[in-house]
Design a protein around this nucleic acid. Sequence first.
DNA 1: ATTTGTAGTTACCTCGCAGTAACCAGAATC
DNA 2: GATTCTGGTTACTGCGAGGTAACTACAAAT
Lengths: 120, 120
Amino acid sequence: MRDERFCASNCSLTRAIGTIGNKWKPIIINVIGTRTIRFGQLDSIIPLISRKVLTEQLKELEEDGLLERLAYKELPPRVDYKLSEKGLAFLPILENIKEWNCKYEVALTPKETDRITYAK
Amino acid sequence: MRDERFCASNCSLTRAIGTIGNKWKPIIINVIGTRTIRFGQLDSIIPLISRKVLTEQLKELEEDGLLERLAYKELPPRVDYKLSEKGLAFLPILENIKEWNCKYEVALTPKETDRITYAK
DNA sequence: ATTTGTAGTTACCTCGCAGTAACCAGAATC
DNA sequence: GATTCTGGTTACTGCGAGGTAACTACAAAT
């Protein structure tokens, strides 16, 4: 999932792509945004991702310092996820990508709803 | 390579990830930058990519309007690639990603050389 | 006549990403 | 005592991304 050879590159862009350059991570970061969110919410909000893959992605994001995980010792379990400073700093880049896409793609829907319309 | 379900999303970020969100395309766009470049140059400059995959990626980038392909009717063949307006508009985003990565990753090399050090 | 150079294409094969379904703990509710 | 709720984990499986190697056209150089 992470590309080790990319992460070992001497090019900073290549290293960045090696860590966050897969299809789910930018989506997850975008969905979390500035809020605190629980695992089950992410699972139900993000379309088409499986629990297993979501777990893996969250673990890697945490390892790479983009995400903070808060597990409460309760039963049934409760776990909160929120972006770290590093993760929050990535949000503007995602906004730029959205703007870039809206500006240049062949027009589809005139009005975007983005975050809201993730439901499965 | 392109993710059709992502491209059909009603979220602009998801659609963007569906088209440029794989490991090679950002790298290719970064390597081309503002210059005109030939297929053989890309093949020798970008590490670890195979001719086959490079061809596929270039074709998709052209189809998605990021890239212009100029084939001269010569023998041996000559083909020039350069970024379109849309492709050029993506370069600042890649620069932001580089800056973000340099700022937050666990420090490796103090001075980056990026584009220069792609040799196989 | 053979080699070289360019930009691919094709057939073949393998590895691993990712999907599905079942299962876990243990308290609380019915 | 059975079900529910949460946040996962595990085993099994399949598909497809992507690698390798061989091959193409045709002109010019040796």
